[in-house]
């Protein structure tokens, strides 16, 4: 029967007890041959256990070269980029097709009216508007000029 707890003996031989406790155990072992014998046996036993476990893998180890993985773009990021690129292409295609469409050009020309304004028209500011003899000429897409005189 030992005076010291077996778990504590394990910690003592592994040098994992507090300094104060360690000193107390050492002092006890000096005066208690039974415990001293047990601790010596446990120390030998622990060493032999360590050695046996080590022998499971005691061959020299050759370190193989480490092959770093190739840099890969995460799938999520790739998908996001693809969606954005497709959206941009669709928008570009829409604008190109819309503005270059012949009917769109035609309708723009048909609706176009040119107003010629002559700023050097003799205007008498003291006369009423109806007596200014102001003329507005409208030119349609066919080139016909229609004049309107303000009276």
């Amino acid at each position: 029967m030992s005076c010291i707890d077996e778990d504590l003996i394990q910690q003592y031989i592994d040098e994992e007890v507090q300094a104060e406790e360690s000193e107390r155990i050492t002092r006890h072992l000096a005066v208690c041959p039974g415990c001293a014998k047990l601790v010596a046996e446990r120390r030998q036993w622990a060493l032999s256990m360590k050695r046996m476990i080590r022998e499971v893998a005691d061959e020299p180890v050759v370190v193989p070269p480490f092959v770093a993985p190739a840099k890969s773009v995460p799938l999520g990021s790739l998908r996001k980029r693809l969606v954005l690129a497709l959206s941009a292409a669709c928008l570009l295609a829409f604008f190109v097709l819309h503005w270059n469409h012949p009917s769109a050009e035609k309708s723009a020309i048909e609706d176009e009216l040119t107003i010629l304004q002559h700023s050097d028209w003799p205007v008498d500011a003291n006369q009423p508007f109806s007596q200014q003899g102001l003329q507005i000429n409208l030119i349609d897409p066919e080139g016909n000029v229609t004049g309107y005189v303000l009276e």
Binding site: E6, D7, L8, Q10, Q11, D14, E16, M49
Partner: peptide
Amino acid sequence: SVGKTLSRTLKKLE
């Protein structure tokens, strides 16, 4: 708990 667990593990292994 390491000391206690280790002590019991080594006994079990033995």
